[in-house]
Amino acid sequence: MPAYDGVEVGTALPARTFGLQRADLVRYCGASGDFNVIHWNERIATAVGLPDVIAHGMLTMAVAARIVTDWTGDPGALQSYRVRFSRPVVVPDDDTGAQLEVSGVVEDKLDGGRVVVGLTATVGGSKVLAGSRAVVRLP
């Protein structure tokens, strides 16, 4: 785990790209209990005005957290986490799906060994999360 004293405002976390395919959405439906049809039924998703099936916002949020929890090493170090879903993550029915690019940077150092990480998540160059912040406690 990175040490609080070794982290500075501006420190970048290792960025990563995550693939999201239709099968991932179905698995997340089952694990979370969120079976909203817009996450698995293209016919209804398009009928209600969406471009296609979209990923659960909570799946995007969970995947984006990975770069923070992988960085700290202990996922239990994450104390708070918030996001705004600025644009839906459209997941086409193909072998590629959506590619979620996530990066993060330390934006602030707080007392108690806590640091604020700002996250950026994009698909095809468009931001899908806005105002995304995580607070983690470092040793």
Binding site: V37, I44, H56, G57, M58, M61, Q79, S80, R82
Partner: peptide
């Protein structure tokens, strides 16, 4: 109508894991 619903914002404050 839940089919018209999308998620807007979410936050978690975790006092412990």
């Amino acid at each position: 109508d839940y089919a018209m619903v999308v998620h807007g914002e979410q936050s978690f404050e975790l006092h412990r894991p």
